[in-house]
Design a protein around this nucleic acid. Structure first.
Length: 455
DNA sequence: GTAGGGTTAG
């Protein structure tokens, strides 16, 4: 039996529910605690709203602790409380917790899973890259007669895309009419993105062309997903065409559309066009951000324009942008391409001053630059510096170092490096073992689902 | 309460 609800509980609940932006979770928290302090009783709606606020704010541990405290104050969580908590786990890539809430806690607490809790769990599988688990959940829904909606399929299609399974993504989209689920623009966007990631730009554009007859209106995400598909397929003309078609489709291009188009030009060595897009942006309402600059620097790199790349990096502070490790990596790489190993090292050395931490990509690019410049000693020094900076080298790093030494007949160094690589091999083995453990966990979870469907 | 698009190394 519910206690009598007094109006102030409702007002508080409304206020907590209104805390739906990323940074308002602490406000939700203080609202919940202040209502308790004022003797206004919080009900399951108050807690569910707080869980949801924590989920949106990326506070998954807090969301889970609210879920736990509900039972402590004798409030029974409902499917809304659980969907919030599962979603919080999904955003934090805690797929085990998400699945355990859905498949263990909910049945234990006699709360029936509905399509929304399943969707949140499918999303958790998608975000952690576990396509098979996502598909298992989809079939479990079917077996449990929980009717999927368009969000279920969108999440599953996204999972296919992430796993490189564009055929499967298209199969799911085709299946939707049979199960009477109507695809939304988001479903199409997921499928277009899946085709793009799989290098299927023709199929991506085909889906875009099918949207009108499916009575789905393309939005700005549709366009950037399609532009991105063109980028992956090396089709810069098509990418630019799509960008120019956006106003006709009443869609305003945004940063994501521009960065995709600039990348498309860059990938096809059309650095002039990439720079042209960048220079045209002030005429639009789009203000270039860090990612757009990174894409432009990379376009210069691919076009063998190291001076231009360095210039862009230098211009970023004027545009009130803070270059990150990707901007520096792209610039270092541009120096490498241009045979400027000293400049590459200068950049690397400047990074700590700019409070940017070089990563494995920055180091690898710099090592390649040294190799190309015949500086095998510097290449080795960088490997040591990497170690000191606790940046773990990978196959590409080692390949770069070994080729730097090999080229100059440094066979002794090469051999000893290969020895070091065998130490590295131990770390790789540990990682492989960790991944194997995770796979075992996936199989066990799949087993639980299978058993549930047999019940 | 649940779903979608962008940038860095060989």
């Amino acid at each position: 039996m519910e206690k009598t609800v007094i109006p102030s509980t409702i007002s508080y609940n409304a206020a907590i529910s209104a805390c739906d932006t990323e940074l308002q979770w602490h406000l939700a928290l203080s609202l919940l605690s202040s209502m308790c302090g004022m003797g206004i009783s919080a009900n399951k709606i108050s807690y569910s709203a707080a869980i949801s606020a924590c989920s949106k704010g990326g506070q998954w541990q807090l969301a889970l602790s609210f879920l736990r405290s509900m039972t402590e104050v004798s409030l029974m969580p409902n499917e809304i409380s659980y969907s919030g908590a599962i979603s919080a786990c999904a955003k934090a890539v805690q797929w085990q917790l998400a699945l355990s809430l859905l498949l263990r806690t909910m049945p234990d607490m006699r709360v029936v899973q509905d399509e929304i809790t399943y969707n949140a769990a499918i999303s958790a599988c998608e975000k952690s890259g576990h396509l098979q688990l996502a598909l298992n959940l989809l079939s479990l829904m079917h077996e449990k007669r929980v009717v999927p909606n368009e969000m279920t399929y969108s999440a599953a299609i996204t999972a296919c895309g992430k796993a490189g399974q564009w055929q499967l993504a298209l199969n799911l989209l085709d299946l939707m009419p049979e199960v009477m689920v109507v695809p939304s623009e988001i479903t199409y966007n997921s499928a277009i993105s899946a085709c793009g990631k799989g290098g299927q730009w023709e199929l991506a554009l085909n889906l875009l062309s099918l949207m009108p007859e499916a009575r789905v209106v393309p939005d700005r995400m549709t366009f950037s997903a399609a532009i991105n598909a063109c980028e992956k397929g090396g089709k810069w003309q098509l990418a630019l065409n799509l960008l120019s078609l956006m106003p006709e489709a009443m869609v305003v291009p945004d940063e994501l559309a521009y960065s995709a188009a600039i990348s498309a030009c860059g990938k096809s060595s059309q650095w002039q066009l990439a720079m042209n897009l960048l220079s045209l942006m002030p005429e639009t309402r789009v203000v270039p951000d860090e990612i757009i600059y990174n894409a432009a620097i990379s376009a210069c790199e691919k076009g063998d324009k190291w001076e231009l790349a360095l210039n862009l990096l230098r211009l970023m502070p004027e545009a009130r942008l803070v270059p990150d490790e990707m901007a520096y990596s792209a610039a270092v790489s541009a120096c490498e391409k241009g045979g400027q190993w000293e400049l590459a090292l200068d950049l690397l050395i400047l990074m700590p001053e700019a409070s940017v931490v070089p990563n494995v990509i920055t180091f690898s690019a710099a090592i390649s630059a040294c190799g190309k410049g015949g500086q095998w000693q510097s290449a080795l020094t960088l490997l040591i510096l990497m170690h000191e900076a606790r940046v773990v080298p990978n196959e590409i790093t080692y390949t770069a170092v070994i080729s730097a030494c090999e080229k100059y007949g440094q066979w002794a160094v090469t051999v000893s490096l290969l020895g070091k690589q065998s130490v590295e091999a131990l770390h790789i083995l540990i990682e492989v073992r960790r991944q194997k453990l995770e796979r075992t966990l996936v199989l066990q979870t799949a087993g639980i689902m299978h058993q549930m469907s047999a019940d």
